Simulated scan of single mutants.
Amino acid sequence: MSGATTVGLITPEPDHPLLAATAELLRSEHRVVAVHPETARLDTLERWADVYLLKSRTPRALALARELESRGVPVINSATATALCQDRTAMAERAEEAGLPFAATRTHGSLAELAAGAGPDGPLVVKSRHSRRHDLVARVDSRRQWAELAGSWANEPVVTQEFAENNGDDHKLWVIAGTVFAALRRSELSPEGRGPTRPLALGQLPSGWARLVVEVGEAFRLDVYGVDVIATREGGPLIVDINAFPGIRGQAGAPEALAALALRRAHEAVAAA
């Protein structure tokens, strides 16, 4: 490919810090266009971009990404990989197939059905089956808590995971095309509630953890993703969630890695055509 590359951002928030910083890097030599997934139509787009970054998970965003892919336009991450990370049941199944240390997960038709049927005592972690903004993630230790949750989330399809004892910190691990970034954050399931994100050098990760999160991307066919990992009392890693194209805020080198990935994928698509 010669000349400038056009990079499309499929997002309602092109000013997101990671995207804004990436766009600033690209615009010195290339073109960046924002595409709002809820209003965009393929037949009214100004022109095709050479590659798109899918920073939205809504049904319309996924439909747009699938249509672009059907026309041979590369999308990062693919619509299929993005959708897989929205279904925690499918996520757990894929992780198990790949031999990843993922939290054992059970699926339930609704929270009301779970609370009324088994009425389990805790500690359990209950989550919305379908991952989205402001979804349900809670630790439950008593029947009273089950009843309270059922009052607000009665019809919500959910999954449950046994609560694994840990020090209360989530290891927030992010990957862009094989480059790993890391931080610590007090879990929203801890008694004190969710805390601020704290820097974590890769050298401070337990041995093998960086390679583990790269293997997640290989298993899920993701290029840009996040993995939440906790250190169990036994010392081993336990994956509790996987996210397609998370925010990756405040990580030095992340915008550069994302810009390089977008340009490389665009060049690869032209070479393969």
Score class of each variant (00 low, 15 high):
Ser187Arg: 07
Gly203Val: 03
Ala138Trp: 11
Arg185Ser: 14
Leu189Ala: 09
Thr160Val: 15
Arg133Asp: 13
Arg221Phe: 02
Arg133Asn: 05
Val137His: 01
Gln161Trp: 12
Pro157Thr: 03
Ala183Phe: 01
Ser187Gln: 13
Lys172Met: 03
Ile176Tyr: 09
Lys172Pro: 10
Pro191His: 03
Gly168Pro: 03
Pro191Met: 12
Ala183Ser: 15
His130Leu: 08
Arg144Asp: 07
Gly151Asn: 09
Val216Ser: 06
Glu218Ser: 12
Ala150Ile: 13
Pro199Gln: 03
Leu200Ser: 02
Arg143Ala: 13
Trp146Cys: 08
Gly193His: 03
Asn167Trp: 05
Val140Met: 05
Ala210Thr: 06
Leu202Lys: 04
Trp146Gln: 13
Val175Lys: 03
Ala201Asn: 10
Arg143Met: 00
Arg144His: 11
Phe181Arg: 03
Glu192Gln: 14
Gly178Arg: 09
Val216Phe: 13
Leu202Trp: 05
Phe220Leu: 04
Ala154Glu: 13
Arg133Pro: 00
Arg185Ile: 08
Arg198Leu: 10
Gln161Thr: 10
Thr179His: 09
Val158Asp: 01
Asn155Ala: 15
Gly151Met: 07
Asn155Cys: 02
Arg186Asp: 05
Arg132Val: 07
Ser187His: 04
Asp169Ser: 09
Glu162Ser: 14
Glu156Asn: 08
Arg132Glu: 06
Gly151Ser: 10
Gln145Ser: 13
Ile176Gly: 05
Val140Lys: 08
Arg139Tyr: 06
Glu188Trp: 04
Ser142Ala: 15
Glu162Leu: 14
Ser187Val: 13
Leu202Val: 10
Leu173Tyr: 02
Gln204Arg: 07
Leu212Arg: 06
Thr179Leu: 02
Pro206Trp: 12
Val180His: 06
Thr197Ile: 15
Ala210Ser: 15
Val180Lys: 07
Ser152Leu: 11
Asn155Ile: 01
Arg211Asp: 14
Glu218Gln: 12
Pro157Tyr: 08
Ala177Ile: 04
Val159Gly: 01
Ala201Gln: 12
Ser131Thr: 04
Asp169Thr: 10
Ser190Ile: 05
Asp169Pro: 04
Asn155Val: 07
Lys127Gln: 13
Lys172Asp: 11
Gly217Gln: 10
Arg139Ile: 15
Glu215Cys: 10
Asp135Lys: 00
Thr179Ala: 07
Leu189Glu: 14
Arg198Glu: 15
Glu162Thr: 15
Leu149Phe: 09
His171Gly: 15
Ala147Ile: 03
Arg129Gln: 14
Val140Gly: 04
Glu192Tyr: 05
Arg139Met: 13
Asp135Tyr: 00
Ala164Asn: 00
Ala177His: 12
Ala182Asn: 10
Asp169Glu: 15
Ala150Cys: 12
Ser152Tyr: 07
Asn155Leu: 05
Arg144Cys: 00
Val216Asn: 07
Gly151Phe: 14
Glu156Ala: 12
Trp209Gln: 05
Ala219Tyr: 01
Glu162Asn: 06
Glu192His: 11
Trp174Val: 02
Arg129Cys: 06
Val180Phe: 08
Arg194Tyr: 00
Glu188Asn: 09
Ser207Trp: 04
Arg194Lys: 04
Val216Ile: 14
Glu215Asn: 14
Ala147Leu: 06
Arg144Ile: 08
Ala183Asn: 08
Asp141Glu: 14
